[in-house]
Nucleic acid binder design. Structure first.
Lengths: 191, 191
DNA sequence: ATAACCATGTAAATGGTTACATGATTAG
DNA sequence: CTAATCATGTAACCATTTACATGGTTAT
């Protein structure tokens, strides 16, 4: 599963241009479990076009640049189904916020709280973003994923709010160490 | 934040060899929010050694290959703290399981259930894996992250178990479409 | 005016995975 | 006897990100 398959997936929902596919990835429910930039979408679409998995119609617009709208072909749909019927690769999550909180004892209290608060905001925004999309009439798969995203984001935000003090308590525990650490950061001149 | 910073982080907990760092990533609470293979860890350690961020002691062992145990230097610790005091990059999650369930209507009912069940197992195993590590005496940061992982995994597993029927109900809704889709998969000969 | 949005693309750089290479020991 | 564990490393490959390049329109 790469950006090519992802584009095929997006096009299975509706015909779209590269620009619109990007929007689908970052605005729709898509954004919460996969992402892709222009630098990967445009080459992917050109590759799919060359392979006959999509067709392309150039559409002139008044007062806007022309856009290339892509449609799935029958071979494109078959290819997508083949991808979809493989066994999924295990999830890969890369969270710098969690990594930083994990090493909370090396952080200044101020920065630790800053990270915590913006991470809570991140999940609350995620919830709002999902809730903002009207689920009426959506197929079961998308409803399921929507609910899963909501459940996970809410659980994360709630846990963090309820356990803030666990992280903030480091201050009292390690007060002396903290001071030394901060001194080191101020003094140290690493590359 | 790359594998180099991650190695510095691991070494801030205790001195270790590349092999041991890998184990920390895949067994400890680490595994749930970041991962790295030998192909990135060994080059990272050599780079860190060349930069003076770590020192290396070769330790001969009876009946085992010699191992290189790395320790953080003062500049290494400063560098780690610098990394840690930046603003974290937003989480990046890549879930093929969710992508596949999202396109549930294009999946055979059997495969859809298979993905769902093994995804639930994945989260349940994640919980067991986290619970399997004794939290006694761990610093606040690690306790916090431990609890967060547990909360998120439990929420995901519970949601999926409670809403299984949402996905399995696609069969009745789209019975005719399904048959056509399956026919297409069997007939189609995409590259 | 200035930023944001619409719209497409390429090239270089980054960073990581996979496969390969080696080899002894121990547990099932 | 076979698989797993311990232990290190390189080279090729791959995918994606970032920076660059261009340019009109619309909203603030």
């Amino acid at each position: 599963m790469d950006v090519k398959s992802l584009c095929l997936g997006a096009l299975s929902l509706k015909d779209a241009s590269g620009y619109e596919i990007k929007k689908m990835f970052e605005e729709g429910p898509f954004s919460h479990f996969y992402d892709a930039g222009y630098g990967s979408i445009y080459p992917a679409l050109n590759k799919l076009l060359a392979d006959g998995f999509v067709t392309c119609t150039e559409i002139e617009q008044e007062g806007r640049p022309a856009k290339k709208v892509y449609s799935l072909t029958e071979t494109g749909l078959s290819s997508l189904k083949e991808d979809l019927n493989k066994l999924p690769v295990l999830d890969k999550t890369r969270s710098e916020s969690i990594t930083m909180l994990f090493f909370g004892h090396l952080l200044s209290p101020k920065h630790r709280e800053e990270i915590l608060e913006s991470y809570i905001d991140y999940f609350r925004n995620g919830c709002e973003c999902i809730e903002g999309v009207d689920p009426t009439g959506q197929p079961a798969g998308r409803l399921f994923v929507r609910g899963l995203g909501l459940a996970v984001y809410e659980a994360a935000a709630n846990y963090m709010e309820e356990n803030k003090d666990l992280l903030l308590s480091i201050d009292e525990e390690n007060d002396e160490t903290e001071k030394q650490n901060n001194l080191l950061v101020e003094t140290g001149d690493a590359a």
